[in-house]
C-alpha cells in the first residue's frame, strides 16, 4: 500500500483537530450529565462528528500514523459509539408501556411456550411435597429428619392456636418483609443455579417441596391440619406457583446448554436467558404479592370460609391468567421483539 500521497500526520491533525475537539467536548458533557441534557444543536452534531471520526480513524490507520494519534481517534470513536448505539433506548420504554406488555402478554406467553419445563418443575416440587407429607403422616418423627425439631414445635403450636387473635400491624409488616427476603431469594437462587445443567433448580425444588410436605404433614399429625390449610390457601397459589415458575425457568436455562439445537451452546444459553428473564421478573412480582397476602391476610382473624373462598378465587384467576392472557392480538409485535432480542 503506497502512502506517498497521504498527508503528514501533523497536517492531518491540524486540519481535523477542530472536529475532534468539538466531539470530545460533547462526549465529556454527555458523560457527566447524561444524554438528555445535551442541547439540540449538540445532538444534531453528534452523528456527523461520529462519522467523520470513523473516517479519520480509518484514514489514519491506512496512512499508518503514529500510535498515539490512532489511539486517540479510536478512543474518541469508541466513546461516541457507546453514546449513539444504546440498546432499545429509554425513549421506547416510556412510549410503549412495555411494563404492561410484559405483564399481560410476554410473561404468560413465555410461560406457555416453556410449559414442558414448567410441568417438570411442578412435578419436581409437588411429588416430593406429597411424599414428605405422606411419610410424615405415617410416622411424624420423619419430619425431624427434614426440618429441625426446634423449628417444628413452635410452628405447630402457633398453628394450633388458630387465628382468632389475628396479628398486629407491626408483626404483619415484619412477616411480610421476612417472606419477601426469604422467598424471593429462594426463587431467584432456584433460577440462577439452573445454569449448572438445571441441577441447582432440581435441588431447590425437591428440597423445598419435601420440607413443605414434612411441615404440613407434621402440623396435620398434631391435629392442626385445618388451620395450616386455612393459612396456606390464600397466598399458596401465588407463592408455590412462583417457586415452580422460577424452578422451571432454571430448568429451561440448564436445558438450553444441554440441548442447544443448531446454535452454539453459548448462543443458545444467551437467547434462552433473554426470553426466560421475563418469567423470573413475573415470579418475583407474584412472590411480592404473596408476601403481602401472607403477612397481612393469611394469619388474620377473617373466618375460615372466606379465606377458603378467596384462596380458591385467586387460584382460579391465576390459572386463567397464565392459560389465557396474551393470546391472539399482538402476535406481530412479539415476533418483531424476538427478532430484536436474538
Amino acid at each position: 500500500m503506497s502512502v506517498a500521497s497521504a498527508l503528514t500526520e501533523r497536517a492531518f491533525a491540524d486540519r481535523r483537530m477542530s472536529d475532534w475537539e468539538e466531539l470530545d467536548a460533547i462526549l465529556r458533557k454527555a458523560s457527566t450529565t447524561r444524554l438528555r441534557k445535551l442541547s439540540k444543536h449538540e445532538i444534531l452534531r453528534l452523528p456527523p462528528l461520529y462519522r467523520n471520526v470513523c473516517a479519520d480513524l480509518a484514514a489514519s490507520q491506512a496512512a499508518r500514523y503514529s500510535a498515539p494519534l490512532v489511539d486517540y481517534l479510536r478512543g474518541l470513536a469508541a466513546a461516541a459509539h457507546t453514546l449513539l448505539y444504546a440498546r432499545g433506548g429509554s425513549f421506547g420504554r416510556l412510549r410503549d408501556g412495555t411494563l404492561r406488555y410484559g405483564w399481560f402478554v410476554a410473561f404468560p406467553r413465555t410461560v406457555r411456550a416453556r410449559w414442558r419445563a414448567m410441568a417438570l418443575a411442578a412435578g419436581l416440587f409437588f411429588v416430593p411435597l406429597a411424599i414428605g407429607a405422606v411419610l410424615t403422616l405415617r410416622d411424624p418423627s420423619f419430619a425431624f429428619r427434614i426440618v429441625p425439631e426446634a423449628m417444628l414445635r413452635p410452628l405447630t403450636e402457633s398453628y394450633a392456636r388458630g387465628f382468632a387473635d389475628g396479628r398486629d400491624a407491626g408483626e404483619s409488616a415484619m412477616m411480610a418483609s421476612f417472606y419477601i427476603n426469604n422467598n424471593i431469594g429462594i426463587a431467584l437462587r432456584c433460577f440462577a443455579l439452573g445454569i449448572f445443567g438445571g441441577l441447582g433448580s432440581v435441588f431447590y425444588l425437591v428440597q423445598n417441596g419435601i420440607s413443605i410436605g414434612a411441615i404440613v404433614g407434621y402440623v396435620t399429625s398434631q391435629g392442626a391440619g385445618m388451620n395450616i390449610v386455612t393459612f396456606v390457601v390464600g397466598h399458596g397459589s401465588l407463592e408455590l406457583g412462583a417457586i415452580v415458575l422460577a424452578g422451571g425457568s432454571g430448568l429451561s436455562l440448564g436445558w438450553s446448554i444441554i440441548s442447544p439445537g443448531d446454535r452454539t451452546r453459548l448462543a443458545s444459553l444467551q437467547s434462552a436467558a433473554r426470553e426466560i428473564i421475563v418469567i423470573v421478573f413475573g415470579a418475583a412480582v407474584m412472590l411480592l404479592m404473596a408476601a403481602g397476602l401472607e403477612g397481612f391476610w393469611s394469619a388474620s382473624s377473617v373466618p375460615r370460609t372466606i379465606k377458603l373462598a378467596v384462596g380458591a378465587a385467586l387460584f382460579l384467576l391465576l390459572s386463567l391468567y397464565v392459560v389465557l392472557a396474551g393470546r391472539g392480538k399482538g402476535s406481530q409485535r412479539s415476533k418483531s421483539n424476538q427478532k430484536v432480542a436474538s
Partner: peptide, 26 residues
C-alpha cells in the same frame, strides 16, 4: 459494563448478570 458488542446494557442484561451472581459466588 457493556455488551460483548460494546453497547450499553439494558434492564434484562443487568438483571441476568446479577441474578447469576448467586451461581458465581459458589
Amino acid at each position: 459494563v457493556v455488551t460483548t458488542e460494546g453497547r450499553p446494557i439494558g434492564i434484562k442484561a443487568a438483571a441476568l448478570r446479577n441474578l447469576l451472581r448467586a451461581a458465581d459466588l459458589l
